[in-house]
Amino acid sequence: MYPAEFDYHRPESVSDAIKLLQENPEAKLLAGGHSLLPVMKLRLAQPSALVDISRISDLKGVREDGDTIVIGAMTTYSELMGSDVIKQKLPCLIDAADNVGDVQVRNMGTIGGACAHCDPASDFPAILLALESEIKSVGPNGERTQSSSEFFMDMFTPKLEPDEVVTEIRIPNVSNIAKATYIKFAHPASGYAIVGIGAVRTNDGNVQLSVTGSVPIAARLSAVESEISGKDLSDDNIKAAAEKATEGLDFVGDIHASDEYRAHLTKVYARRALESLK
């Protein structure tokens, strides 16, 4: 519970942060720290330096850009939950944020931090996938915007260079969202998702569904989506679609919940999520 020695930097800007990352190849970005600091305290991670970007004001806040909602990467869960824009237009993000950790975690943890960490049991990757969000990052060679499905590559592995900083999460076509939700079966101790399902129904009849927790990295439930999209959300249709929730996916297991149990819960929660889209 006592981390090894490290340097601490608090750059004023993203470009300064990138410069520090280039100068210190063993450095890590600190973007809230509720995942990083515990592993440092266990000495499982021993970065030479922490580059704290959590107070860079350019990276904070929620704004609208036409029909896109833009969330600064260093916006905390608490700030997100307090945002009027989110309350009015994307309350499903409040469902998701409310499921994250506890008050202290929500006060410190940031959306960009959660994305870049790519924890397989993290809540936000699932809902951001279902919303077909984009993730913008800046590196030494300039900025790029990737779809969330490209970005969440693998367990703890975002599509991100070591000297690249996530700056924005962009949720497009907000006016086309008819209903959206995030529901979760949490591990009672850690609060992390054993299964979390993000679900979106659009005005044009598409259903977008994603899963976290039960799989190595958050993923779309494309078999369910193609089964249900364009159809009535009748009980029978929902049931038939939810049965396909495990198709094409590998499931993870541990002492708390086996892969078989997680696969089962994925079906149950896919069904429950679809029911709430009615």
């Binding site: 591990h187 009672p188 101790a189 850690s190 992390y192 002492i255 708390h256």
Partner: peptide, 16 residues
């Protein structure tokens, strides 16, 4: 010990 931390060993929270 596989349940060697509060992340794995569930001391009930208020909600439980």
């Amino acid at each position: 010990l596989l349940t060697g931390s509060m992340m794995d060993y569930c001391v009930p929270k208020f909600e439980h």
